[in-house]
Design a protein around this nucleic acid. Structure first.
Length: 902
RNA sequence: GGGCGGUUAGCUCAGCGGUAGAGCAUCGGCCUUACAAGCCGGGGGUCGCAGGUUCGAAAACUGCACCGCCCACCA
């Protein structure tokens, strides 16, 4: 089989991916024996389109999944999407807005139908894009957080938590988005510093004996004030604590209370208290039994409680309140003041703390065993049942977990899992019935008029169950037994709180029942936190910056393999990733290099037997055994690097081996034996094919398409006892038990490489063109012997374009017209052509001499330091002594070489 | 206000206690029949600053500066 002149990524990608799927290579079967490697995809939003973050995340997934599959693991990579409650609802709302409609025009049922319709048509596009990347998911297991099975898991978990008292409904102050008209969790609020003012407002004492001035950033909330608070040890106010003030504009008397939470230094030391619209005030209000007044409605307009201000927006109300205070002479002064304003993370509208009934998950509430959801999730990481990579992310996880508040899980949306709580329309004030199935009648009054709670759950509630709900929970399925806990979670740091932390809590609690070791209950053993992808200027990619790189676009331009390789190569633990076209170009060049190497090999296999008969190690040449040895090193290093999530190291190792060892040296060295025919040719053919095969196997996780394409061409020549049909399921190599190269042979090859490079360097210095032949000589340092010179002489001659390579005896004079260069173990010389200016050589050698002298001086200085010899270990001291000898020898050689030139 | 990460060649980054590395870019020479998306060779860094620890620090410690990020209810 012959390969075309250039590699065509597009056709290879389509062809092989389809074939892998058709063959069912990515399907996982729990009944299969062997060690298990399982991983669930972080489900992208159904609304999503593939961006570079996904491309990176999926590349990393696929690299490790493909390696594990090839290593013989029972491998599962489970794909799916998230219904993404608020995000998806917003998308569809925007769509119907084009027809001038709101969701309220459609009504709940029709609107939800519409969202499902949208999802059928446009949703999940992202999963198709993932296929283009080569993602080797088990596509037959695709799940959706709102599908039937997962919804059942959601309901079950909710009911179980409710019955344990870990979910409760309560009237509290929560974050409210007046535009989305829903509650938000603390995490869904972005705090941004914004310029504002501090308004100083005078509150007259009710008894007319004066006034107290408070400072506030939100004057409009004055309408809901139910107290003024001061610090209990503030002498300025001691006398008036317990009195009441007349609340301006509202003409209500409210008390002055003392509370240690008040900062004496801030503002006037007195603060107005609005429990209905401020979290601090809410807490303080509870301590002092203050009334809670909500002066706004769900859309952020002033409510009837705001009296004459009812109906105004928050903003208009503020202006009116300030004006009115001013006209009544109650506004002392206005100071500019920076303060944090909370914004809805979805729509950027300023959130409003609102009093309302919501459902909360009591993450810190201890159970009968004294353990809380958060506590267990913390313990699991502390005990190493789950480990983060890089490790420092554990600090982030801990610091959040340890300060975790109750999680507000209800949303006033329509798209999501409806809360399984039912209200009897007849029994007023009776608690809801929480059950998996809709009850037929009210257990209290027997009436059948039951209404399900209108709220849906936070979208992260169902995502939190993902690692086990997708495996069949609550049923005790074989999948669940086999694949849970999953081996690894790969995700971005931005959802450690939203998702990772919640999966930990849910997984530990439910996936495996309540007993057992934490390490069997956690949702994943390892967490790999991916870097953030930045543009070539190191900026975060955002739509507003317009610097978003579309992965599909660069896949079209550079080939999917090149994109994958680039991303893997840039994935350094604990650091952001900067993508540039130069990198992509380099990776494409790498693919091209591999392609051409394959063409060379196949060209030289013409007429060779299929399969190629193996040749025993002892019958191989030094170069043959050297490349086999290097291959083993590469295999070992790549495996270790991927095992340790060092994807950059892994990619670099493959790159180095293929390009700079296999192509630069081995291919060049085997050209002669290939041409010569006979046993040498047979051996070279065998080693070429064998190395290429192994090389493609370690390349495959990074560049699945080109590797499969080449491997298919090579396959007829392979003589494996259990040869797979395709590389995607071929065995990942393991290094040979014994190094095919002895230590002295390895040393000989290193000398060969050094000598060849020195010859080439000299050739360049004296001005030979690559085509021109030269004669060379070399001399080994005294007492060093020639150490197998004859075994590698031919290689150096071939790659150094040398016609005669004669050794020089220890005592022999250097021949005239030959320019020498020192090596660590001797010197190499190349004869200069006619008319060469030896002055040039002297300049180069002199510079080198200075360098050597510098090193020498430093080392001697170190060696003569009495402290060094006294305190450093003997081995190091001996090493330095040796180094000094080497450097001295080099210095002597250089001096001789320079002197001879003069 | 707390915390985390970063600062090494023009760029992007490895190295993390014993002579400063890679890729790309750059310069010189080559179309040497696998590959010009290539080959051979060269230049380029007082490893952010300061201090201490050590025989020895780019690396470990302390402080500082700058960049980036996360968390936080001072009204």
């Amino acid at each position: 089989m012959e390969l075309s002149k250039t590699f065509d990524p597009k056709s290879a990608e389509d062809h092989w991916f389809q074939l892998w799927i058709d063959r069912g290579y990515f399907k996982a079967d729990a009944a299969r024996p062997g060690p298990v490697f399982s991983i669930v995809i972080p489900p992208p939003n159904v609304t999503g389109a593939l961006h570079l973050g996904h491309a990176l995340n999926s590349t990393i997934h696929d690299v490790i999944v493909r390696m594990r599959r090839m290593q013989g693991y029972n491998t599962l990579w489970l794909p799916g999407t998230d219904h993404a409650g608020i995000a998806t609802q917003n998308v569809v709302e925007r769509e119907i807005a084009k027809d001038g409609k709101t969701r309220h025009d459609l009504g709940r049922e029709k609107f939800v139908d519409r969202v499902w319709q949208w999802r059928e048509t446009y949703g999940g596009k992202i999963l198709h894009q993932l296929r283009r990347l080569g993602a080797s998911c088990d596509w037959s297991r695709e799940r959706f957080t709102l599908d039937e099975g997962l919804s059942r898991a959601v309901t079950r978990v909710f009911v179980m938590l409710y019955r344990e008292g870990l979910i409760e409904r309560d009237y509290r102050l929560i974050n409210w988005c007046p535009r989305c008209e829903t509650a938000l969790s603390d995490l869904e609020v972005d705090h941004k510093d914004a310029p504002g003012n501090l308004w100083y407002i005078r509150y007259p004492l009710s008894d007319g004996s004066g006034a107290i001035v408070v400072a506030t950033t939100r004057p409009e909330t004055l309408l809901g004030d139910t107290a003024v608070a001061v610090h209990p040890e503030d002498d300025r106010f001691r006398a008036i604590v317990g009195k009441t003030v007349r609340l301006p504009l509202m003409d209500r008397d409210i008390p002055i209370v003392a509370d240690a939470a008040v900062d004496k230094e801030f503002g006037t030391g007195a603060v107005k208290i609005t429990p209905g619209h401020d979290f601090n005030d809410f807490d303080l209000g509870r301590r002092h039994n203050l009334a809670q007044i909500s002066v706004m409605d769900t859309r952020g307009r002033m409510s009837a409680e705001a009296g004459t201000y009812a109906g105004l927006t928050r903003e208009d109300c503020r202006r009116r309140v300030v004006d009115d205070l001013k006209s009544q002479g109650l506004l002392e002064k206005i100071e500019p003041h920076q303060h944090a304003v909370g914004a809805c993370s979805r729509c950027d509208t300023t959130v409003e703390p609102m009093l309302s009934y919501q459902w909360f998950m009591r993450v810190n509430k201890p159970g009968p065993d004294g353990k809380s959801l958060a506590g267990e999730a913390i313990a699991a990481v502390e005990q190493g049942a789950t480990t983060f990579h890089p490790k420092f992310w554990e600090n982030t996880y801990f610091s959040w977990m340890r300060n975790l508040q109750d999680w507000c899980i209800s949303r006033q949306l329509w798209w999501g899992h409806r809360i399984p709580a039912y209200w009897c329309e007849r029994c007023e004030d009776s608690p809801p019935i929480v059950a998996e199935e809709r009850p037929h009648s009210c257990p209290k009054c027997g009436g059948g008029d039951l209404r399900q709670d209108e709220d849906v759950l936070d979208t992260w509630f169902s995502s939190g169950l993902w690692p086990f709900s997708t495996l069949g929970w609550p049923d005790e399925t074989v999948d669940l037994k086999t694949y849970y806990p999953t081996s690894l979670l790969i995700t971005g740091f931005d959802i450690i709180f939203f998702w990772v932390a919640r999966m930990m809590m849910f997984g530990i609690k439910f996936a495996r029942g309540e007993s057992g070791d934490l390490k069997d209950r956690v949702p994943f053993r390892d967490v790999f936190i991916t870097p953030l992808v930045r543009d070539q200027y190191g900026k975060k990619m955002t739509k507003s910056r317009g610097n978003v790189v579309d992965p599909l676009d660069i896949m079209d331009r550079f080939g999917t393999d090149a994109v994958r390789f680039t991303l893997a190569q840039l994935t350094v633990q604990g650091r952001d990733l900067v993508l540039s076209e130069e990198r992509l170009t380099a990776s494409r060049a790498f693919a091209n290099k591999i392609w051409n190497a394959a063409r060379f090999v196949l060209m030289n296999l013409e007429g060779a037997p299929q399969p190629i008969p193996p040749v025993e190690i002892p019958k191989l040449s030094l170069a043959d055994r050297w490349i086999l040895s290097r291959l083993d090193h590469a295999v070992r290093d790549v495996t270790a690097a991927i095992d340790g999530y060092e994807f950059n190291t892994a990619a670099l190792t493959v790159y180095q081996f293929i390009w700079h060892e296999f192509c630069d040296w081995y291919i060049e060295l085997c050209k002669e034996p290939l041409k010569a025919g006979g046993a040498g040719q047979a051996a070279a053919r065998y080693v070429l094919v064998h190395c290429f095969d192994r090389m493609l196997r370690i390349l495959h996780p990074f560049m699945p398409f080109i590797s499969e394409e080449i491997w298919q061409a090579l396959r007829p020549y392979l003589s494996e006892p259990d040869l797979s049909d395709h590389l995607a399921v071929a065995k990942f190599p393991t290094p040979a038990d014994r190094d095919p190269l002895t230590q002295s042979e390895a040393a000989a090859m290193n000398r060969c490489i050094e000598a060849t490079q020195a010859v080439n360097s000299l050739r360049s210095l004296v001005g030979y063109h690559p085509g021109q032949r030269a004669t060379a000589t070399l001399r080994f340092a005294a007492g060093d012997g020639d150490r197998g010179f004859e075994t590698w002489k031919g290689y150096a001659m071939a790659l150094g374009k040398v016609t005669a390579f004669a050794p020089l005896g220890i005592g022999q004079e250097r021949p005239a017209r030959v320019v020498f260069a020192p090596l660590g173990w001797g010197e190499v010389g190349v004869e200069a052509p006619e008319g060469f200016d030896f002055e040039k050589a002297r300049t180069v050698l002199t510079r080198k001499l200075e360098e050597v002298r510098g090193h020498l001086a430093r080392n001697i200085g170190r060696y003569e330091n009495p402290g060094f010899r006294a305190k450093a270990d003997a081995e190091t001291v001996a090493e330095i002594a040796e180094k000094i000898e080497d450097l001295k020898a080099q210095q002597k050689l250089l001096e001789g070489q320079i002197e001879q030139l003069g």
